[in-house]
Design a protein around this nucleic acid. Structure first.
Length: 715
DNA sequence: CAGTGAGCGAGCTTCCGCTTGACTT
C-alpha cells in the first residue's frame, strides 16, 4: 500500500516526508496548477460564467511528477492549505489527476507529527462550497480586471491596468495626497510652567483653564493667559502613583513582519519576503539544511501548543519564573478576513537563538531572524510593569500636569522592545519628587508655537497595513501589488514615501467617475461576505456573480460610450534643447523618465534627468550632480563624467578623506545623526567593513544545488 | 553606480492568489 500526499510547498513536502513512514510519498504542486488562460477572458458569460481552465504555463515539470507518482500510488491525499485557495487547488488536482476517491482531502493547521497522522487517518471529501467561493472570487477579479484594463488602453494609454485590489491601493495614495494638499495647518500654542523645587526644576504643561481643556490658538491668547497668571501661586494639588502594565505584542503575521522590518530594519516588503523565504527553506547549519522559521505568508497569530510550551520552557530556563505569565498566552486570530491556514511566523525552535545562528546567516538573514525570534519569545513572556507618576499643579484657575514613568519590571521588554521606551524616558526627565500641597516658585513660563500637521504619505508598510485592515489583498500579494503600481507608474517611491503620479491621479479619477463602486473600500468587504455565504451554502455562486455582473455590464457599456479619449500632455521642463532651442519635456520610456525635445520627431534630442547640487567635485572642480541608476536608486556623480569618474551613493561634501584623499560623503542615519563616510571601499578608514562581494562560503548556493540533486529515500 | 528611450502599427498588453525559481528592469 503506497500513499501519495500532495502539498503546496516543496519545503513542506520534504519536512512531511521525513515525518511519515516509507509507504508515503510527499510531493509539491507548487501552488495552483490550473487557472484561467492569460490571453483571453476564459469566462463564458452567456453560460453561467462557465470558466475555461488550462494548466499553468511553466508548470509542466511539476505536473509530470505528480502524474507519474499518482500512477504508482494506491491512494492519493490532497493536503493543500486548509483555506479557500487551498480547497480550490485540491479540487483542480482532483479534476486533473482524475482522482475518484471521494475521501481524498486532508487538512491540518500545523506541521507536527500528531496533527499530520491524525489528518491522514481521516480523509474527507472536497468542500465544494469553498471551491465555488474561490471560483466566484477568481471570475469576478477576471471580469473586472480584463474588461476595465482594455478600456484604459483604448482611452488613455496601452499597457495600463485596473483591478479590484491594485486600483484601491492607488486610490488610497491619491486620496491621501489630496488630503495633504488641501490641509490647512492650524496654529496652536503649548504653555509650560517651569517651577523651582529643591530637587531641581519641575516642568508642567498647561492642561485645563477653568476646568475646560486648554486651548491657546494664537500668541494673543498666550499673552492674555500670562497676564492672568501673573502673581498667582503654583500649588501642587495632587501627586499620584499608579502601576501600569503593558502586554507583549502577538507573534508576526506577514503584514506585521513587513511593517516592523520596514520600521526597524529599513527593509522593503519584497526584500523582507525574500529573506524570510530563505529562512523558511533552510540554511546550512553545521552541514545540515535546517528550516529556521515557519511559513512566512500567513494572516494568523496562532501558535501550536507544542511551540508555545517550548517557548515557556525557554523563558523559564533563561530568564526565570518571574518572566513567565501564569497562563500561556493564546493569540486567537479574530474571525473575519483571517483564513488561518498557517500558524504565526515564528522560529521552528526557540533553542536556535539568533546569537547561535549568527555564523551561518547573512547580515540580513540574521537581522530578520532576530526580529522574528525576539517577537515570538516576548509574546510568551510576562507583562512589563511601569510606575506612572502624575503631578498636578494649580494656579489662577489653571491646571498644569506632568507625568513620567519608571520601569519597575521589564517583563517581555527584556527581549523585545516595542520602541515606546525612548519617549517615556523623555517624559521622566520632567518629573521631580514633590509633595502634595507644596507651593513652588515660578521660574518662568515657556510658550511655544506649533501647527497641526497633515497626515503622512503612505509608505510601503503603512499601505500594507491599511490594505490589510480593509481586507484588501492577501499575505501572498501585499509585496507584489506595490511592484505592480510602481511599474505601471501610477505611483513613485522616494525614500520611504509613495507619491501618486499624474497618471495615477488620472486613472483613479476615471475609474472613480465611471466605476465608483468597484474602487470603493467597501467593495471587497461586500464581496467577502458574499463569498462567506457561498462557503456556508447560503448563496449560489452563479447568482452572486450575476448580481454583480448585470449592473457592471451596463456601467461598462456606458463607460465605453461616454469616456473621452485622454491626450496626455507631457510635462514641460525648464530646460531648453541645445540643438533646436525648443523646450525639453519629460517622457516615459521603458527605463523610466527622461528628457526629450518637444520638437519630436523633427528633433530627436534626448537627455537623462540630472539634478544639480551645490557641491563641487574636489577631483576636477566640476559640479556634483544627482542621478538615478538603472534600478532607480539615487546616486551622486561628477558632471564631467566620463572624464571624471567620481561617484558615491551619498551626498558628497567638500572635504577630502584624510586617509586616501577621496572626496567624503555625508548621510543622515535613522537616528538622525550625520555620518561622514569615505565612498572608497578600499580606504583604510573602511577597514573591517564588509565589501559587497560574493564570498565562496555562500550558504544558499550550496543548499540549493544540493537539495534537488539529493535523491530522497527511495525503496 | 551613468548607455537607452518616444512615433509608426502588428500583435500584444490586463486581473488576483497560490507557489518557486530563472532571468533581468
Amino acid at each position: 500500500m503506497k500513499t501519495l500526499i500532495i502539498v503546496e510547498s516543496p519545503t513542506k513536502a520534504k519536512t512531511i516526508e521525513n515525518m511519515l513512514g516509507k509507504s508515503y510519498v510527499v510531493r509539491p504542486c507548487v501552488g495552483h496548477v490550473r487557472d484561467l488562460p492569460k490571453s483571453t477572458m476564459g469566462v463564458d458569460i452567456e453560460h453561467d460564467f462557465a470558466p475555461h481552465y488550462i494548466t499553468i504555463r511553466g508548470k509542466g515539470e511539476v505536473i509530470k511528477v505528480l502524474k507519474d507518482e499518482a500512477k504508482k500510488a494506491d491512494q492519493i491525499l490532497l493536503a493543500s492549505d486548509p483555506d479557500r485557495e487551498g480547497e480550490a487547488i485540491a479540487w483542480h488536482l482532483q479534476q486533473y489527476l482524475r482522482i475518484n476517491n471521494e475521501q481524498c482531502r486532508i487538512r491540518f493547521n500545523e506541521i507536527t507529527k500528531t496533527a499530520i497522522q491524525n489528518a491522514v487517518e481521516h480523509p474527507q471529501p472536497i468542500d465544494m462550497n469553498k471551491v465555488e467561493a474561490q471560483q466566484a472570487r477568481r471570475i469576478l477579479d477576471r471580469l473586472v480586471g480584463y474588461q476595465i484594463s482594455p478600456l484604459l488602453w483604448k482611452k488613455v494609454k496601452k499597457g495600463l491596468s485596473a483591478g479590484r485590489v491594485q486600483s484601491v491601493a492607488v486610490r488610497l495614495i491619491c486620496d491621501r495626497e489630496k488630503e495633504i494638499h488641501d490641509f490647512v495647518p492650524q496654529e496652536y500654542w503649548i504653555l509650560y510652567a517651569v517651577l523651582q523645587s529643591d530637587k531641581g526644576n519641575l516642568v508642567v504643561k498647561l492642561a485645563k483653564i477653568d476646568n475646560k481643556k486648554a486651548k491657546l490658538p494664537d500668541e494673543e491668547a498666550v499673552e492674555e493667559l500670562k497676564r492672568r497668571l501673573a502673581g498667582e501661586t503654583y500649588r501642587v494639588s495632587s501627586v499620584s502613583k499608579k502601576d501600569r502594565t503593558r502586554h507583549p505584542l502577538p507573534p508576526f503575521t506577514t503584514s506585521m513582519m513587513q511593517q516592523e522590518a520596514s520600521r526597524r530594519l529599513s527593509m522593503r516588503a519584497k526584500k523582507t519576503m525574500q529573506t524570510a523565504q530563505q529562512l523558511y527553506e533552510g540554511i546550512q547549519v553545521d552541514g545540515v539544511v535546517t528550516g529556521l522559521i515557519t511559513y512566512m505568508r500567513t494572516d494568523s497569530t496562532r501558535v501550536s501548543d507544542e511551540a508555545r510550551q517550548h517557548a515557556r520552557d525557554y523563558v523559564r530556563e533563561r530568564y526565570g519564573e518571574k518572566f513567565l505569565p501564569a497562563k500561556p498566552r493564546a493569540y486567537n486570530s479574530k474571525k473575519g478576513t483571517v483564513q488561518d491556514a498557517h500558524e504565526a511566523i515564528r522560529p521552528t525552535s526557540v533553542q536556535r537563538t539568533p546569537q547561535a545562528l549568527k555564523p551561518f546567516l547573512s547580515a540580513t538573514q540574521y537581522k530578520l531572524y532576530k526580529l522574528i525570534w525576539e517577537r515570538f519569545v516576548a509574546s510568551q513572556m510576562a507583562d512589563a510593569i511601569y510606575e506612572v507618576t502624575t503631578i498636578e499643579v494649580t494656579a489662577g484657575g489653571c491646571l498644569f500636569k506632568a507625568s513620567g514613568s519608571i520601569a519597575k519590571f521589564p517583563g517581555y521588554t527584556q527581549v523585545y522592545n516595542d520602541g515606546k521606551e525612548e519617549q517615556e524616558q523623555e517624559d521622566l526627565s520632567k518629573v521631580v519628587p514633590v509633595n502634595e500641597g507644596d507651593v513652588l516658585p515660578l521660574e518662568r513660563l515657556d510658550a511655544s508655537q506649533h501647527f497641526t500637521q497633515p497626515p503622512p504619505r503612505f509608505s510601503e508598510a503603512s499601505l500594507i497595513k491599511t490594505m490589510e485592515e480593509l481586507g484588501i489583498g492577501r499575505p501572498s500579494t501585499y509585496a507584489p501589488i506595490i511592484d505592480t503600481i510602481l511599474s505601471r507608474y501610477y505611483v513613485v517611491r522616494e525614500e520611504k514615501q509613495l507619491y501618486p503620479t499624474e497618471l495615477g491621479f488620472l486613472v483613479v479619477d476615471l475609474i472613480k467617475e465611471y466605476f465608483g463602486d468597484i474602487i470603493d473600500v467597501e467593495f471587497t468587504a461586500t464581496m467577502e461576505s458574499n463569498l462567506d455565504r457561498i462557503e456556508e451554502g447560503e448563496a449560489n455562486w452563479v447568482q452572486i456573480l450575476r448580481d454583480f455582473y448585470d449592473p457592471f455590464a451596463v456601467t461598462l457599456a456606458h463607460a465605453e460610450q461616454e469616456m473621452e479619449k485622454v491626450v496626455i500632455e507631457p510635462e514641460v521642463s525648464d530646460q531648453v534643447c541645445e540643438k533646436c532651442g525648443k523646450p525639453m519635456v519629460y517622457r516615459m520610456g521603458r527605463y523610466g523618465r527622461f528628457l526629450a525635445c518637444s520638437g519630436f520627431p523633427e528633433c530627436r534630442n534626448t537627455k537623462a534627468i540630472i539634478v544639480p547640487t551645490n557641491v563641487k567635485c574636489l577631483a576636477c572642480g566640476g559640479d556634483i550632480v544627482e542621478r538615478k541608476s538603472r534600478s532607480g536608486r539615487i546616486f551622486y556623480g561628477c558632471a564631467n563624467y566620463p572624464e571624471c569618474r567620481y561617484v558615491a551613493w551619498d551626498m558628497p561634501i567638500e572635504e577630502k578623506c584624510p586617509h586616501c584623499g577621496t572626496q567624503l560623503t555625508a548621510k543622515t542615519t535613522k537616528t538622525g545623526k550625520e555620518m561622514i563616510l569615505c565612498p572608497n571601499m578600499d580606504c583604510p578608514s573602511r577597514a573591517g567593513q564588509k565589501r559587497k562581494t560574493r564570498s565562496a562560503s555562500s550558504k544558499s548556493t550550496k543548499s540549493k544545488s544540493a537539495a534537488p540533486a539529493k535523491p530522497s529515500k527511495k525503496k
